[in-house]
Amino acid sequence: MPPEQQTPQPRPEAAAHRSETAPRWTERLHGLGPVIGLVLLCIAGTLLNGDFATVDNAMNVLTRTAFIGIIAVGMCFVIISGGIDLSVGSMAALIAGSVIMFINWAGPASGSPLLAVVMGAVLAVVLGAVFGLAHGLLITKGRIEPFIVTLGTLGIFRAYLTYFADGGALTLDNELSDLYAPVYYASLAGIPVPVWVFVIVAIVGGLILNRTAYGRYVQAIGSNEQVARYAAVDVDRVKILTYVLLGVCVGIATLLYVPRLGSASPTTGLLWELEAIAAVIVGGTALKGGAGSITGTVVGAVLLSVISNILNLTSIISVYLNAAVQGFVIIIVAFLQRGRR
């Protein structure tokens, strides 16, 4: 839709100049919105409780953010391409449950617990990719709205997990759980493993989005699918790949999640989809697609978990109002980064 707003080419030079320079500068300022919000929040957090600014707390927050953050990076691609995925929380839960059942079975069956855990981790990513592929095919070849497809699978994935868990919880056997635990709890150079993975996923995501032809196609499809089609972009393939990419991200997030509690229950991953979508949008990506940034998404994800962290570290606000504070901050940050309409 934005192209329609452009004036029909009088004074091409001046028009081109203005649109090149002026909006760029303001856009850059808007792009800083989430960062400013995060910095302000961190200052507020430090003032409210000195423990906020400790390395331990920072690592806790970043490690927690890793799941949502990794999923949000994948979600960023889907949203930029003009799609949406509501199923990621349920998908993560089902993958977690399946991986736990697989490892519990493969541990004794293969005789090598380590092999079982490694295969379980691989299975998480493969399952994610398969689920993503199914979404992509239904959306492009099946021509069903992504909202409906993923709303459907949201229910399907969670129902199957509940069924497998018999309404209770699936739990990793103790010995296997100890073997798997370092994936979440261990640190490399003082930084927890999930944070490293989060950083790597974000960098790779940023490179794909900004430095490859595929990344440009994703943005092109999001801003105008018809034009992209006329420009000989294989729209279906690119779209399917965004969902596969998101599925892989969910798989990676899950393989980091499983060792944290060593269990999956029907409440696992509840509302993760909204948190991931919120992180992407707060980070400055347009929900209607076309443009967005991985850096913004990462900042958005961190910002969301910092809010709840600060709320937990203080008790100046009634616990009944915690959700309201989160809502206010999200809206304020979105206001700071509002772009042109």
Partner: peptide
């Protein structure tokens, strides 16, 4: 010292406890 909601959920309980331990 404090009582916060963790929604009868394992993950939320993990996060809230982490923050209690920091605080």
């Amino acid at each position: 010292l404090d009582a916060k909601y963790a929604n009868w959920n394992r993950d939320d309980a993990f996060k809230v406890t982490q923050d209690y331990l920091t605080r």
